[in-house]
Simulated assay, not measured.
Amino acid sequence: METFHWKIRPDMTMEAEPQVITVKMGDGYEQRRPAGLNSNLKKYNVTIKVRKGEHQRLETFLSRHGGVKSFLWTPPYTWTKIHVVCRKWSVSVGALWVTCTTTFEQVVI
Rank of each mutant, 00 (worst) to 15 (best):
K88S: 14
R33L: 04
E30W: 06
V98K: 01
G67F: 00
V23S: 13
V84W: 01
T99L: 05
F61G: 04
Y44P: 04
V107T: 03
P18H: 06
N38S: 10
I21Q: 11
T47Y: 08
Y77M: 13
Q106W: 01
Q106S: 01
N38L: 12
G94Q: 11
A35N: 09
T47K: 12
I8G: 07
K7V: 05
W97R: 10
Q56E: 14
K7F: 05
S63Q: 03
Q106E: 15
S63F: 03
P76G: 01
A16S: 15
E15R: 11
H5Y: 13
G26A: 06
F71P: 02
I48T: 05
W6K: 07
I82F: 07
A16P: 06
S90E: 10
H83F: 15
V20W: 09
L96Q: 07
L96D: 03
N45A: 13
L37K: 06
K42M: 10
P76V: 09
T103D: 05
T102V: 08
A95D: 15
E105Q: 10
P76D: 03
H5M: 08
K42A: 09
T13P: 08
R57E: 11
R57G: 14
F71N: 01
M14H: 09
P76N: 06
G53M: 03
L37V: 12
E59I: 05
T74V: 12
R33Q: 15
I109F: 13
T3Q: 07
L96K: 08
C100L: 12
K88G: 11
M12F: 15
